[in-house]
């Protein structure tokens, strides 16, 4: 069951990610990204991170991506045009990211030799109670700092998106 679920949702995530990069229209890209996020939230569940899985659904796919889709629809942004300026990134991008991937995989397999096998239900410390407890005791200061960050972001967004900007 674990293998089946992991394989299926990992494939969904990878196909969605490739589709995000390949699709020409922003709406298609956005929906591909939503599918990646939903697949990742299932993987979080398999890893026992129940709260994070739900937060992934609520915050990422339920709010952030809705905002993206809203902006794309609002701007009525069409398909991306072929760019005339082919930069250095076009030539070096693919080989370099492939190299990055190979290097990362190598480091992972070498350094994580004592890795556990993932079994659904083996780790139960990711429920809302445990996450909340850790968040409001050990990580209270970072939590408060992020709340200030969000306040600043709200103010910034309001100032930037005001109509009469000159």
């Amino acid at each position: 069951m674990d293998v089946l679920l992991f394989t299926f949702f990992a494939l969904v995530a990878i196909v969605g990610a490739v589709s995000l990069v390949v699709q020409k229209h922003p709406i298609s890209s956005a929906l591909s990204l939503v599918s990646v996020m939903v697949a990742l939230s299932v993987l979080f569940l398999l890893l026992g991170a129940e709260f994070i899985a739900a937060a992934q659904l609520v915050v990422y796919s339920g709010a952030i991506m809705v905002l993206f889709v809203f902006v794309i629809m609002l701007l009525n942004a069409g398909a991306e045009r072929e760019s005339r300026k082919a930069g250095l990134a076009q030539f070096l991008g693919l080989p370099l990211t492939a190299a990055l991937l190979v290097f990362a995989s190598y480091v992972i397999t070498q350094s994580m030799s004592n890795a556990k096998a993932v079994k659904f239900g083996a780790f139960t410390g990711g429920g809302p109670r445990e996450v909340g407890w850790t968040l409001f005791t050990q990580y209270l200061l970072p939590f408060e700092v992020t709340s200030i960050l969000i306040l600043v972001a709200i103010a910034g967004a309001v100032v930037l998106a005001r109509k009469e900007i000159d």
């Binding site: 709406i27 129940e50 739900a54 937060a55 659904l57 609520v58 796919s61 809705v66 889709v69």
Partner: peptide, 25 residues
């Protein structure tokens, strides 16, 4: 019967907006 039941409902109903937004677009 899951420990994140309410959050899951919030998430899924939040996802429901894609149907409407996509239909409109």
């Amino acid at each position: 019967d899951i420990s994140i039941g309410l959050l899951l409902i919030l998430g899924l109903t939040g996802m429901g907006v894609y149907g409407i937004a996509l239909a409109g677009w």
